[in-house]
């Protein structure tokens, strides 16, 4: 499977800005922040759902970037590093939400939701209205399944990588991905459309 950096994290950062940021140049660090704040916030928002928590994740992510960019040695994978920091911070925030009981059924196993295995689902969303439906549906699936589907299908992480970040196993990640797709299919199924999409 090819792991592709999703469009949101395809950000051109010139070497000079990175070198200055590594030297602790505040203006360069802010320039990096400005380039990445939207993708980081978007990722955090998808995982945590709360604007407030997503801003916390953004802050934690860049505090980590400011602290650790000196030790960052990667070539051209700055975006990948920042994204990984963001994903880890967002998962941490989810665990906190779970501990506070804000996120219902965090690690539960609602068997009924995965019962719809096999083919026969609704068509995939394509129009603007369907996009809104998809966003609404995504927000309704349980936190862990939502995090896994986002990290896997959108951010391009493998099940092994997700397992390492979340402190779970790869098979847990696989079952959560299936669960997320099953939930999405259920949520999008009623009245999405029949026949052609006009």
């Amino acid at each position: 499977m090819s792991v592709v950096t999703p469009p949101s994290f395809v950000v051109a950062v010139d070497e000079l800005t990175v070198a200055r940021a590594r030297a602790g140049d505040e203006a360069a660090l802010e320039a990096l922040f400005r380039r990445f704040e939207t993708p980081v916030y978007s990722l955090a928002r998808r995982l945590t759902r709360s604007p407030h928590d997503a801003e916390d994740v953004l802050q934690e992510t860049f505090l980590e970037v400011v602290r650790s960019i000196r030790r960052f040695r990667g070539d051209g994978s700055l975006a990948g590093w920042i994204r990984k920091v963001a994903a880890s911070k967002a998962l941490m925030k989810l665990r906190q939400q779970g501990a506070r009981g804000r996120e219902e059924e965090l690690f539960d196993d609602l068997a009924g939701h995965t019962s719809g295995d096999g083919p026969g689902g609704s068509p995939a969303p394509g129009t603007a209205a369907e996009r809104v439906d998809l966003e609404t549906a995504l927000a309704q699936i349980p936190a862990t399944a939502r995090a896994v589907i986002w990290l896997h299908d959108v951010e391009g992480y493998s099940h092994d990588e997700i397992a390492a970040m979340a402190g779970r196993t790869a098979s847990f990640s696989k079952s959560q991905l299936a669960r997320a797709h099953a939930r999405l299919r259920e949520l999008l199924a009623p009245g999405v459309r029949e026949g052609t999409c006009t």
Partner: peptide
């Protein structure tokens, strides 16, 4: 169904980005 799952993945990736409403940089 495989094709549909690929289309769901593409639709998720195509969701618009969200922007923070507050400037977080000063806090960092």
């Amino acid at each position: 169904e495989v094709k549909r799952l690929a289309a769901v993945r593409a639709a998720l990736a195509a969701l618009p980005e969200e922007r923070p409403s507050n400037d977080v940089w000063p806090a960092v």
